[in-house]
């Protein structure tokens, strides 16, 4: 009896422990997993599902296969084809104009502050402060500053003897305005990331470089930049994604105009999906999927290029 009991019990305890061991990590991630599934995984797959349907929220979903994708990707007769690619062009312009500045300017500010000049804490707070404002506040401040006829910027430009600049009504000025307000608003975040990265670079590397006779510029390219590789990859990918997802600045400052000049993808997706008497959720979802896939490809390419070992 006893013997058989022991025999029977042994594997059971083992399997129970096994089972527990397997479950433990799930318990740790379960709170996050729960929210991840509800707010990310489910909406993502539901969005994919909607994109194959014609739906306006009221009627039943109508399966249309690839028609939504056709209308934006290869059906050149469709009005949405023109709108989508115009919006894509607008987004691309914004990304190309904004990303380099959003990386280079915070990098140099971080370098300056990291050198610990007099008042560096004050400047760190100062450069970070705009990031705390909501986008509506930021855009309103800049609209007032950049007002063609009553704004401060054009007042000084007029004082210098130049004509008014149509900052918020004409290309290419609209792009400059949108990029400038975005830079002002978001440099703080990237600056903090760079500062953290700079703090991680050991001092002895600089000392060694000095002993080898490297000047400041050589130190920057041979010690600082390689040391910042991790944060740089992160900042570059996150900034690119954020710039692709721009919406509120053109929506509030230029209303997507003049014409369709600054109607960026997310703004257009919002208009298609949620405004007007006839929302087109399927089409909007299809555009989101296409944008998501594009971002995935671009990020992967960036990641591969940046982390390639020499």
């Amino acid at each position: 009896m006893n013997v058989s009991n022991v025999k029977n019990n042994a594997p059971r305890t083992k399997s129970r422990r096994n089972w527990k061991e397997k479950l433990t990590p799930f318990l740790f991630i379960s709170p996050h997993l729960f929210f991840f599934i509800i707010f990310l995984a489910y909406p993502t797959f539901y969005g994919l599902y909607i994109s194959f349907h014609s739906w306006n929220f009221f009627t039943d979903m109508n399966f249309v296969g690839l028609q939504n994708y056709a209308n934006i990707l290869w059906n050149t007769d469709s009005i949405f084809f023109d709108y989508f690619w115009a919006a894509f062009r607008a987004t691309l312009i914004f990304v190309v104009l904004s990303v380099p500045f959003l990386i280079i300017i915070p990098l140099f500010i971080a370098l300056g502050i990291n050198a610990r000049p007099f008042g560096h804490n004050f400047f760190r707070a100062l450069f970070y402060a705009p990031s705390l404002l909501s986008v509506v506040t930021v855009v309103l401040i800049w609209i007032w500053l950049l007002d063609t006829n009553a704004g401060l910027v054009n007042y000084y430009i007029g004082w210098l003897g130049f004509d008014n600049i149509p900052w918020l009504t004409r290309a290419p000025w609209v792009w400059i305005s949108l990029v400038v307000m975005t830079i002002w608003w978001t440099i703080g975040t990237n600056m903090i990331l760079f500062l953290a990265g700079l703090g991680e670079i050991p001092d002895h590397l600089y000392e060694a470089a000095k002993i080898d006779g490297a000047n400041r510029i050589q130190q920057f390219f041979n010690v600082t930049l390689p040391g910042l590789k991790g944060p740089l990859v992160f900042v570059m990918i996150m900034t690119t994604i954020a710039s692709f997802n721009v919406m509120a600045q053109p929506q509030l400052a230029t209303n997507g105009g003049p014409g369709y000049e600054t109607r960026v993808l997310i703004l257009y997706i919002y208009e298609v999906g949620f405004t007007g008497g006839n929302p087109r959720a399927g089409l909007a979802a299809a555009m989101s999927v296409v944008l998501g896939l594009m971002l995935l490809c671009i990020s992967l390419v960036q990641f591969k290029l940046m982390t390639k070992e020499k």
Partner: peptide, 9 residues
């Protein structure tokens, strides 16, 4: 990446 892409919209 995946978080940023699908949340921001």
């Amino acid at each position: 990446l995946s978080a940023a892409m699908f949340v921001a919209a």
